[in-house]
Amino acid sequence: MISAFRNWPSALFLCLIALSLLAPLLPIHDPLAMNIASRFAPPSWAFPLGQDEYGRDILSRLVWALRSAMFIAISAALLSGAIGSALGIIGGFSRGATEVLTMRSMDIILCFPPLLLAMLAVTLYGPGSLTLIPVLALVFVPSFTRVAHASVLTVRSQEYVDAARGMGAGAGRIMLRTILPNILGPLIVQFSFVMAVTVVLESGLSFLGLGVLPPAPSLGLMIGTGRATLAQAPMLLVWPCLVLSLLILVLNAFCDRLRDWFDPRHVHGTGN
């Protein structure tokens, strides 16, 4: 009982993943099917959370919005994490001109406010989740590069890096096999942070009409329209906000567990 409770982040995260993956198979209504006759209908057996301003099923729209939010957040964070960490490790390990090049180019990206950069890209390439992912990834590359770079600087002076060089290991092997595992902790923390911020940024952009396009469901879009009908149907605003908060909480807590799990000092299992 207690051990299951202790590992609630992983359990909840798996639930959310399963929910997102299985959305098309679940016995829920079509999130796009409108029914003007039952606008703002209160919860019923058929529609447990009620219907929105077009009579669409709120529950099913929440599930599909969750699916798109998780897809965008995870792929953007993975993409920026991979590129950013690689640049940071290479820069921190090679020093010299490479370091200047990698770190300064990140400073250039950091000059642009993230929202502005996203709006620029959306104006150029049009809105939609396929633009959103590379743009969000680009926005968060510098944060990974900086975290990786700073961690490499402390790890590279450790004697076990010298020991690996002394064994005849090449630069690539040292970066991948010796340094990377030892800086994984801060990178995973950064990853969880980026996932959470990506979810917020994606809903913000969608809220502004620059992200996911209507009628496709998105948490940001739902909050945007819910705001307009706040007086008639306050729950239309409350449900997507609750899901958004839960999602961010679960992502953070899960990444915390992930970091502990990668640490060999941590006792695997239920703890003690």
């Binding site: 004697e159 076990y160 010298d162 690996a164 002394g166 064994m167 005849g168 030892n182 060999p264 000092r265």
Partner: peptide, 18 residues
């Protein structure tokens, strides 16, 4: 490295903790 190997001072820093 096939011919010369080194043993370092600090046994807590010279083994990769991972």
């Amino acid at each position: 490295s096939r011919h010369v190997q080194m043993v370092f001072q600090d046994p807590f820093a010279s083994l990769n903790p991972r």
